[in-house]
Design a protein around this nucleic acid. Structure first.
Length: 270
DNA sequence: ACTGGCCCCTGTACGC
DNA sequence: TGCGTACAGGGGCCAG
């Protein structure tokens, strides 16, 4: 589920209910997500006040007044519930605040993660250090991507999923962006000309922005923290549409690239 | 230095 | 109805 737009939506939702809140209770119901939740997370969070939020790639960041950054990754199936009515089997981590607000991290597959890092160490945190540029900033531009793709015989689809090439694009938006750019997913990085690379950049930025504006995509288990659903999934042109007709009249195809489903129209994408 | 392949884990959908 | 199988939005790690 959660690619950049969904994480951005989640961060905004959490920010609305938690900014300025003092944490009075922290529960770790299950400590082994992708990696263990830090053993000292309770003593470091309890009594602190949440001051701000940020997002890097598909990671959400919650800052407190002790210069600690709580970093979450939602993996494939994670989401935050706000003021949950009941605590279920897969609610692994719960925060309660002074004003009686409660959030829980729900993640059945446990591919997500929670880390607590000193703010000053964020730039050298290994998981952040290797990330490529944020797609919605000026760092993700023609000059950069051209040089990054020029030395790679890997397919453009796999390159877009590589977080070191561009941070935050996942399987859905990679498929949709390549469709919009008119570039076939199997094309190798070093086969793309300047115009095609420019189209890909433009498509990624546009699609991510649209998806954020729509509150992310809704698939099987995604909801905004408030419980509302996102609407971007209604705008998918190719993702999940194998055998359906493209707007051009051709049939949308599916193949597996790097173990991930890839959807495209070989008539529109060359 | 890159690459492909495998693995983590649970829930759901579908075919027999 | 029930069971086995395939598949799902992510990414780390390893061997080659």
């Amino acid at each position: 589920m959660p690619e950049l737009p969904e994480v951005e939506t989640t961060v905004r939702g959490l920010s609305q209910v938690l900014t300025g809140e003092k944490i009075i209770e922290v529960k770790v119901c299950r400590s082994n997500l992708r990696r263990p939740i830090p053993y000292d997370i309770q003593e470091r969070l309890i009594g602190s006040t949440i001051i701000s939020f940020d997002r890097r790639a598909k990671y959400g960041i919650i800052f407190n007044d002790r210069e600690d950054a709580l970093i979450f990754h939602l993996g494939m199936s994670g989401r935050w519930k706000i003021n949950p009515e009941t605590i279920e089997k897969h609610d692994h981590f719960i925060l309660k605040t002074e004003n009686n607000r409660c959030v829980s991290l729900y993640d059945p597959r446990r591919f997500g993660s929670l880390d607590l890092i000193k703010t000053k160490d964020l730039l050298i945190w290994p998981y952040f250090k290797k990330l490529g540029p944020e797609p919605l900033t000026g760092d993700f531009n023609l000059e950069y991507l051209k040089s990054r793709l020029a030395r790679s015989a890997t397919s453009i689809k796999k390159l877009l999923l590589n977080q070191q090439v561009v941070a935050g694009v996942g399987n859905i938006y990679a498929c949709e962006a390549l469709y919009q750019a008119g570039v076939h997913p199997e094309r190798s990085g070093n086969s793309l000309n300047k115009q095609e690379i420019a189209s890909i950049i433009e498509a990624i930025k546009e699609i991510l922005q649209k998806a954020i504006a729509e509150g992310g995509s809704t698939l099987k288990d995604y909801a905004r923290p408030s419980g509302e659903l996102g609407y971007f999934s209604a705008q998918f042109k190719v993702y999940g549409k194998e055998d359906a007709l493209c707007e051009c009249g051709a049939t949308i195809e599916r193949s597996v690239m790097g173990g991930r489903s890839t959807f495209f129209c070989s008539s529109c994408q060359k």
